[in-house]
Amino acid sequence: MTALLTVENLSKRFGGLQAVADVNLSVAAGEICSVIGPNGAGKTTLFNMISGVLRPSGGRIVYDGIDLKTLSPWRYAAAGIGRTFQNLALFKHGTVVENILTGRHTHLRSNVFDAVIFFGRTRKEEVAARQRVEHIIEFLEIEHIRDAVVGTLSYGQQKRVELARALACEPKILLLDEMVSGMNQEETEDIARFVLDIRDELGITVLMIEHEMRIVMDISDRVHVLNFGRKIAEGTPDDVKRDPAVAEAYLGRQRAETLARAGA
């Protein structure tokens, strides 16, 4: 399969702290890939570099044939990189529809004069944007809250709105940062189903950070494991599950060895 995203020897320093060190990974078009690791492993820093929030200290990121070092961060969404955040980044006083519409900004070509007149191209873009938003609302099954003010919604509902906004930019690759954190079992299962549908029905490649191992093992094609900023393992979910380095990273060496002996 063709790699849509390739990370080569990627590093990030914050003063004397090496948050990410020489990480290599690739994501093929049409894959669901997960990045896992203990707290502080560098997962979100990695995502921040891929999505343009942070500039790498070293290495490079190639997305769809483009070296992202040559691209201004504000152009990432237009290039097809969508993202959700671990900490919600919604407009709490806006409605669900209004929040999702902000994801259409990269597709608007009208200038300020067109907007004042609100005719021709501007009107067509507005109609097209709202049609797209309604399709996403139906896809994510949030019709019943479409007109609700986001700040009045539950945490799980707000997470779904943030996912909707990311889809509104029509990404080729979607970065999901801890989508199911704080969700109950039913909400978690819904998100897992939506992630599969996003790949299978919308044709969007997915790269996700996730602590919920059940989801990682159930829906991922490949898993990359970080610890202390370095990649320590990669492979299929089954490969990673059996890797002693992964068990040690999560459990500590002594407990991992004890469990390994018990399993033997």
Rank of each mutant, 00 (worst) to 15 (best):
Asp197Phe: 10
Asp197Ala: 15
Leu196Thr: 15
Gly182Asn: 08
Ala233Glu: 01
Leu202Pro: 10
Gly229Ser: 12
Glu170Arg: 15
Ala166Tyr: 00
Gly182His: 09
Met213Asn: 05
Ser220Thr: 12
Leu163Cys: 03
Ala166Asn: 03
Arg160Lys: 14
Ile215Ala: 00
Arg214Thr: 12
Thr205Cys: 01
Tyr155His: 15
Gln157Val: 06
Val180Lys: 11
Tyr155Val: 07
Ala192Lys: 11
Leu163Arg: 04
Ala233Phe: 05
Met208Phe: 14
Glu212Arg: 15
Val195Leu: 01
Met217Ala: 10
Lys241Ser: 09
Asp243His: 12
Phe194Ile: 13
Pro171Ser: 03
Asp200Gln: 14
Phe228Tyr: 14
Thr205Trp: 05
Val246Thr: 09
Leu175Gly: 08
Thr188Arg: 14
Phe194Met: 14
Asn184Leu: 06
Glu234Leu: 06
Lys241Gln: 09
Asp221Ser: 13
Arg193Glu: 00
Ile232Pro: 06
Ala164His: 01
Val216Ala: 04
Gln158Glu: 06
Ile209Cys: 04
Asp197Arg: 15
Arg230Glu: 04
Gly235Thr: 10
Gly252Gln: 07
Gly229Thr: 09
Cys169Ser: 13
Glu201Tyr: 04
Leu226Ile: 13
Leu153Phe: 10
Ile191Asn: 03
Arg165Ala: 00
Met213Gly: 09
Arg165Lys: 12
Glu210Ile: 12
Leu202Asp: 02
Asn227Gly: 09
Ile215Gln: 12
Gly156Glu: 02
Leu167Phe: 04
Glu210Asn: 11
Thr236Cys: 03
Gly229His: 09
Pro171Arg: 03
Glu178Met: 10
Ser181Gly: 15
Glu186His: 15
Gly229Asp: 02
Arg165Trp: 00
Asp197Met: 15
Ser154Asn: 08
Val240Ser: 07
Leu202Glu: 10
Gly229Tyr: 06
Glu170Pro: 08
Ile191Trp: 03
Arg242Lys: 13
Ile209Trp: 03
Asp200Tyr: 04
Leu207Met: 12
Met213Phe: 05
Asp238Phe: 06
Val240Lys: 10
Asp177Lys: 12
Leu196Phe: 01
His211Ala: 02
Asp239Ala: 15
Ile215Ser: 07
Asp239Gln: 13
Leu167Lys: 02
Met217Tyr: 13
Gly252Met: 00
Asp221Leu: 04
Gly182Met: 04
Leu163Met: 09
Ile173His: 01
Asp218Ile: 13
Leu207Asn: 03
Ile204Arg: 01
Leu251Met: 14
His224Thr: 14
Asp221His: 15
Pro171Tyr: 01
Val206Arg: 06
Ser220Lys: 12
Gly156Phe: 09
Asp200Ile: 06
Val240Met: 08
Ala249Asp: 06
Leu167Val: 05
Val240Gly: 05
Arg230Lys: 13
Leu167Gln: 02
Phe194His: 14
Ile173Glu: 00
Glu210Pro: 06
Phe228Gly: 11
Arg199Ala: 02
